[in-house]
Amino acid sequence: MNAEQLRWFKSSYSSGGGGECLEAAACPTIVHVRDSKNAQGHRLDVAPAAWSALVTHARRG
C-alpha cells in the first residue's frame, strides 16, 4: 500500500501552529508513521504492539 492509499491522521498532541507534528496510518499488520511536514519523505513502519507500547510510554512521560 502506498502513502496516498493510507488513511493518515495527525497526532492529537500536534499543535495547529505548524511545529513538530507526526502522522500515523494504521493497517492490520503495521502502523506507518511520518513527519507531517514532509509527507513524501521517509516513514517508519512498526508492528502494532510496538506502536501501542510507544504511545503508552509517551503518555506516562
Rank of each mutant, 00 (worst) to 15 (best):
48 P>H: 09
48 P>S: 12
39 A>G: 13
6 L>F: 09
37 K>G: 07
8 W>I: 01
61 G>M: 08
15 S>F: 06
40 Q>G: 14
9 F>G: 09
2 N>M: 15
61 G>Y: 12
19 G>Y: 00
8 W>S: 05
11 S>A: 07
49 A>D: 14
51 W>F: 09
10 K>P: 05
13 Y>G: 05
47 A>T: 13
6 L>E: 06
44 L>R: 07
37 K>L: 13
36 S>P: 02
46 V>C: 07
28 P>N: 09
27 C>H: 10
59 R>A: 10
25 A>Y: 03
60 R>A: 13
2 N>S: 11
51 W>M: 01
35 D>K: 00
12 S>K: 05
9 F>T: 11
52 S>C: 07
19 G>L: 00
59 R>S: 09
13 Y>C: 07
48 P>F: 08
12 S>A: 11
59 R>P: 03
17 G>Y: 02
43 R>M: 12
17 G>D: 05
26 A>L: 04
2 N>Y: 14
4 E>C: 12
51 W>K: 01
19 G>N: 04
11 S>P: 03
42 H>C: 15
13 Y>Q: 08
24 A>C: 09
59 R>H: 11
7 R>Y: 12
42 H>K: 15
1 M>I: 15
54 L>Q: 02
49 A>Y: 08
15 S>Y: 04
1 M>R: 14
57 H>T: 09
14 S>V: 02
24 A>H: 01
15 S>R: 04
43 R>Y: 06
38 N>C: 11
55 V>F: 05
12 S>V: 04
32 H>C: 10
57 H>D: 10
59 R>E: 05
22 L>P: 00
8 W>C: 04
33 V>F: 02
8 W>M: 03
2 N>G: 15
41 G>S: 12
41 G>E: 10
38 N>Y: 09
24 A>D: 00
31 V>N: 03
36 S>N: 07
25 A>S: 11
38 N>L: 10
7 R>L: 12
50 A>R: 07
52 S>R: 05
27 C>A: 09
29 T>V: 10
40 Q>L: 15
35 D>V: 01
42 H>E: 15
56 T>F: 03
30 I>W: 06
28 P>F: 06
45 D>Y: 04
58 A>T: 04
54 L>H: 02
46 V>D: 04
61 G>C: 11
4 E>P: 07
1 M>H: 14
1 M>V: 15
54 L>W: 05
15 S>A: 10
25 A>W: 01
38 N>S: 12
40 Q>N: 15
58 A>G: 08
51 W>G: 00
2 N>V: 13
29 T>A: 12
27 C>Y: 07
20 E>K: 08
58 A>M: 07
23 E>D: 06
60 R>T: 11
23 E>I: 01
45 D>V: 10
9 F>N: 14
50 A>T: 05
20 E>F: 08
1 M>Y: 14
38 N>Q: 14
14 S>D: 01
23 E>A: 02
19 G>D: 03
21 C>P: 00
5 Q>E: 15
25 A>K: 05
57 H>W: 11
16 G>I: 02
51 W>D: 03
28 P>L: 05
34 R>W: 00
48 P>C: 10
40 Q>H: 15
9 F>S: 13
3 A>I: 13
13 Y>F: 13
20 E>M: 11
45 D>A: 14
10 K>T: 11
15 S>W: 01
44 L>Y: 07
22 L>H: 00
37 K>R: 14
17 G>F: 00
7 R>D: 11
17 G>Q: 05
9 F>I: 13
30 I>R: 08
4 E>L: 13
50 A>E: 10
2 N>A: 12
5 Q>A: 15
